[in-house]
Simulated assay, not measured.
Amino acid sequence: MRPVLPVVTALAAAATLALSGTAQAQQADPAPKSALGPAAYFEFADAANDKFVFKLTDPAKIQHARDLVNGVTTANPSVIGKIVAGTESYNPAWSYHYDPATVGFFEVATEVCDASIGYVEEHLSEVGGAFLPGNTWCPWSSHVVREVTVP
């Protein structure tokens, strides 16, 4: 008989991540999802100094990212969201991108969604299983460095 505890533990971790990610995103970004406007693009760096560009459409989230870049706030400095395999024109260096509708900001998140930009690229085929359950990615060392112009 297979041990049940590792499976139960993995499922509990995934459920906790899903619930905490949703709660953190709602707490950090109270703007309703229907408040969509023109897109803005931002770049974040991680501890390895890799850079990743993401798209925002929610005006409150765009303002929060601009406030981070301009030093107006230091609250919820890191980026969280669900990733999708595939290159986007605004983020051509990587084979994946954030789903813009899921991007938010956080101060603290569970370890199960933490990974560097390069590590995600190297293990993209494993995303959604035990690695980054639910495709939720929250690089702890991420920090927004600038707003970028996309042609």
Results as ranks from 00 to 15, higher is better:
residue 4 V to E: 11
residue 4 V to C: 07
residue 5 L to G: 05
residue 6 P to G: 06
residue 7 V to R: 14
residue 8 V to S: 03
residue 9 T to S: 09
residue 9 T to G: 03
residue 9 T to P: 00
residue 11 L to V: 09
residue 13 A to T: 08
residue 13 A to V: 04
residue 14 A to R: 12
residue 14 A to W: 02
residue 15 A to M: 09
residue 17 L to R: 09
residue 17 L to C: 11
residue 17 L to Y: 06
residue 19 L to R: 14
residue 20 S to T: 12
residue 21 G to K: 01
residue 21 G to T: 02
residue 22 T to N: 11
residue 22 T to R: 11
residue 23 A to K: 12
residue 24 Q to I: 13
residue 25 A to I: 10
residue 27 Q to S: 12
residue 27 Q to D: 08
residue 28 A to E: 06
residue 30 P to N: 14
residue 31 A to N: 07
residue 33 K to G: 09
residue 34 S to T: 12
residue 34 S to P: 00
residue 34 S to K: 02
residue 36 L to G: 07
residue 36 L to S: 09
residue 37 G to A: 15
residue 37 G to Q: 13
residue 40 A to L: 09
residue 40 A to E: 14
residue 42 F to P: 08
residue 44 F to S: 05
residue 45 A to M: 10
residue 45 A to I: 13
residue 46 D to H: 05
residue 47 A to T: 04
residue 48 A to N: 14
residue 48 A to H: 11
residue 50 D to W: 03
residue 53 V to G: 04
residue 56 L to F: 07
residue 57 T to Y: 06
residue 58 D to R: 08
residue 58 D to K: 11
residue 60 A to M: 07
residue 61 K to F: 00
residue 63 Q to D: 15
residue 63 Q to P: 00
residue 63 Q to C: 01
residue 64 H to R: 08
residue 65 A to T: 10
residue 65 A to M: 13
residue 66 R to N: 15
residue 66 R to H: 09
residue 67 D to G: 10
residue 70 N to G: 13
residue 70 N to H: 15
residue 73 T to M: 13
residue 73 T to A: 11
residue 75 A to L: 15
residue 75 A to Q: 15
residue 76 N to R: 04
residue 79 V to P: 04
residue 80 I to D: 05
residue 80 I to T: 12
residue 82 K to S: 13
residue 82 K to T: 13
residue 86 G to D: 07
residue 87 T to Q: 15
residue 87 T to S: 14
residue 88 E to R: 05
residue 88 E to C: 02
residue 88 E to L: 03
residue 90 Y to E: 07
residue 90 Y to V: 06
residue 91 N to S: 05
residue 92 P to C: 12
residue 93 A to N: 14
residue 94 W to S: 06
residue 94 W to D: 03
residue 94 W to Y: 08
residue 96 Y to E: 02
residue 98 Y to Q: 09
residue 100 P to Q: 07
residue 100 P to I: 02
residue 101 A to G: 05
residue 101 A to E: 12
residue 102 T to E: 09
residue 103 V to D: 10
residue 103 V to Q: 11
residue 104 G to L: 05
residue 105 F to T: 05
residue 106 F to L: 05
residue 108 V to M: 01
residue 110 T to A: 11
residue 111 E to H: 07
residue 111 E to P: 00
residue 112 V to Y: 02
residue 113 C to S: 15
residue 114 D to Q: 07
residue 114 D to A: 04
residue 115 A to C: 07
residue 115 A to I: 00
residue 116 S to H: 07
residue 117 I to C: 01
residue 117 I to W: 00
residue 119 Y to E: 11
residue 121 E to K: 03
residue 122 E to Y: 00
residue 122 E to N: 06
residue 123 H to T: 07
residue 123 H to D: 10
residue 124 L to F: 01
residue 126 E to L: 14
residue 126 E to W: 11
residue 127 V to W: 01
residue 127 V to E: 01
residue 129 G to D: 11
residue 129 G to C: 06
residue 130 A to Y: 02
residue 130 A to W: 03
residue 131 F to M: 04
residue 131 F to V: 04
residue 133 P to W: 01
residue 133 P to Y: 02
residue 135 N to H: 14
residue 136 T to M: 13
residue 137 W to C: 00
residue 138 C to G: 08
residue 138 C to A: 14
residue 139 P to K: 06
residue 139 P to S: 03
residue 140 W to A: 04
residue 140 W to V: 02
residue 141 S to D: 02
